[in-house]
Amino acid sequence: MSAPRFRWHIAVFLAPAVLVYTAVMIFPLFNTLRLALYSKIDQERVFVGLQNFYTLLGDPTWSDQFWNALGNNFWFFLIHMVVQNPIGIALAAILSHPRLRFAAFYRSAIFIPTILSFVIVGFAWKLILSPIWGIAPSMLDAVGLKSLFAPWLGKEEYALTALSLISVWQFVGIPMMLIYAALLSIPEEVLEAGEIDGITGMSAFWKIKLPLILPSIGIISILTFVGNFNAFDLIYTSQGALAGPDFSTDILGTFMYRTFFGFQLQLGDPYMGSAIASAMFAIILVGVCLYLFGIQTRMRRYQL
């Protein structure tokens, strides 16, 4: 009787992915968490424990910025949840309607912005909304609504909402595609059975389709949450590292970048920067856990 042979091929096939993932994701993540516990004092790296986190949350000059960025991040997330996801679901519902013509064309057209670079999207929208060269003021003028135009990206009260909506425009294709796929997987028999019971049209969507795609909506919410709390590019390309005007568009990503790498005369502080990055990691981790254990496990699933 020989012991069961060690199955080498499993290790061999796993190795590339594990090695690459460890080198570019796991190691930097843990190193960042470690770096957050150090500080530089007189050119020496010193272990300071949780001091950086006390500073971040206790020192008003840091905590004000941190809470401001966190608050802005929640607003950014909220706009995506109330605007992007319902629109995505509605678009998917319309696209999956069997009698809609040119569905493939609409699907591609709506999805294309998602594959564009943030730099292009930020730059294009900045031009569109520019009070000087932009087409937004002249378009509003053409329909007699010029008075509604404001330099949105330059006003404290509108800038963050405007940027959130730009981001919604860019990413609305993702929930649309996921929901579209979920809708297509609903078997015809279920809908036909409903039809026999007199459930058609809108009520078929609310009573049959929506409950069946709820797990997909849950996944989309969590993807939106993670994506929004890691966001950085759009704000950085359109408003710069100071996230103007007056930090009204500052989110955790830009706050972390400014601290870690420095900006203009502000020298970079990798240790405080890591502390902010760790805080971001913790927030996302808590959010994802709440969702996974609080909502996902209780969600009712239907055998199709």
């Binding site: 900045k126 909304l129 520019s130 009070p131 000087i132 003021p137 330099p151 949105w152 330059g154 005007p245």
Partner: peptide
């Protein structure tokens, strides 16, 4: 300053 200077960028000003 010009209309909508709040959203006017540095290259905008140079060009104007």
């Amino acid at each position: 300053l010009g209309d909508g200077y709040e959203a006017q960028t540095y290259p905008d000003s140079q060009n104007i």
